[in-house]
Design a protein around this nucleic acid. Structure first.
Lengths: 233, 233
DNA sequence: CGCGGCATTGACTCATTTCAAAGGTGGTGG
DNA sequence: CCACCACCTTTGAAATGAGTCAATGCCGCG
């Protein structure tokens, strides 16, 4: 991993939305890197020396499945911390997905050492890991959805919640291929699900990457039929 | 939630396997409850006042999907901590799945307060959350598997790693129905996948709940064909 | 004994994958 | 400026794997 010292460290949290607390105590340790799309941040199996945080752009954690396909385990947007490893090695490979993605890297040992003497920081780190956990759980719920349309719909809602304010259109940070690998679907099914939602009037496109969400409920259940609890007689 | 004071607190960690450190500092705060199968530990939406840890038996965190189906988000075995919430409310409902499951409950505020003055404890809590995170990620990988047989196979391997030593048969802590809700499959598909693996000689049953794992590779790829990387010419 | 929950198996249906093709887009270099 | 290329996106038709519906067997337990 290549790390560049950042000349002006002050402004680098301005684009974060998810981060409620700014982990100021850690800022002194941070090194910020600018990455091209596809560039690697850390690699599975390599010594896990750093924690990371997305400042701008987007990144992903992924694995290669035995059948040659890729699975994206985690989509990382501004404010998201990642690469918390249990052991001494990274458990996943992380890459930038957008051109010009900014990643902050915190040396793990020093961060932990600092946390030992600063309870407030320790709490904030705990919070960051809790957030990481919440992200994984949200993803589990999406993968657990019944059909493809519901999965894609839930993802759209998730993205909206994470990176745009209600009412504004969502700009998809990743391609259809990435969405497919993220939801364990084929590209074609992702595309079809989107056009399906479009035809139903649940979403409106302005360009292939900009989506205006119209009908939230339709996105959630992914089923044109009346949404009612199945009652056992 | 009903909590009983435990008369002899000393022995309660003896059945834990996953826990590498025992969070001794927290033991003073712990209250242990014995639960019947199906009994609730905490409920989604209620104030999240406690962290929990399975001491014996098994538990699950689940949600009810809009179509009336249940999704199990997390399977909890001895040594697993859970119910780390970001906000003030539990994000999932947790239930015991086995008769006589023992759950330790730690008051959250006191635990955090204690962690503030004890860096070693703070680290151990961090580790516990990291483990929680690792569990979620492993589950994501299982859900991402291509076909049903691979999902079921991976789950068996996961269970083996978590609660029995290599060579010994795995005792399934949950029913086929629970496995179905855990893997987002139908009960029938779970059953068929198991008999499929049995016919292939990958596993051997001794009773419906005891499985001897014979061929690990066959469980992993869930495909009878030769396991080779697909090469683009 | 008979009940209720769990497990297995079969036949049919349907959603998703796969295979195939074509249109769109952006970037690069002549 | 245009041509070309690589990649992304969409759509169609066929193949297949998982869901659904239905029936039966199993087992523990009151």
């Amino acid at each position: 991993m290549r790390l560049h010292q950042n000349r002006d460290i002050e402004f680098r949290f301005e684009n974060r939305k998810g981060a409620h607390r700014s982990l100021r105590q850690l800022d002194a340790l941070a090194v910020v890197t600018r990455l091209r799309r596809g560039e690697e941040i850390c690699r599975q199996g390599h010594p896990a020396g750093h924690w990371h945080c997305v400042l701008q752009g987007a990144a992903e954690r992924s694995v290669l499945k035995l059948d040659g396909r890729r699975q994206i385990v985690d989509l990382l947007l501004p404010g998201d911390f990642f690469a918390f490893a249990i052991g001494q090695e990274y458990d996943f490979t992380s890459c930038a997905v957008l051109e010009g993605t900014l990643i902050a890297s915190y040396p793990r040992r020093q961060a932990e050492w600092l946390a030992d003497s600063d309870p407030a920081l320790a709490r904030e780190i705990r919070e960051a890991v809790f957030n990481s956990l919440a992200r994984m759980q949200a993803q589990l719920l999406i993968l657990g959805r019944v059909n493809a349309v519901a999965k894609v719909g839930s993802l759209l809602l998730d993205l909206e919640a994470r990176l745009s304010r209600r009412g504004e259109p969502v700009v998809l940070p990743i391609s259809r291929y990435d969405i497919a690998d993220y939801l364990s679907l084929s590209v074609e099914t992702v595309s079809r699900s989107l056009t399906d939602l479009k035809h139903r009037g649940a979403i409106v496109f302005s360009g292939t990457r900009r989506v205006q969400i119209v009908d939230r409920d339709a996105l959630e259940d992914g089923d044109g039929e009346a949404r009612m609890m199945r009652v056992r007689h």
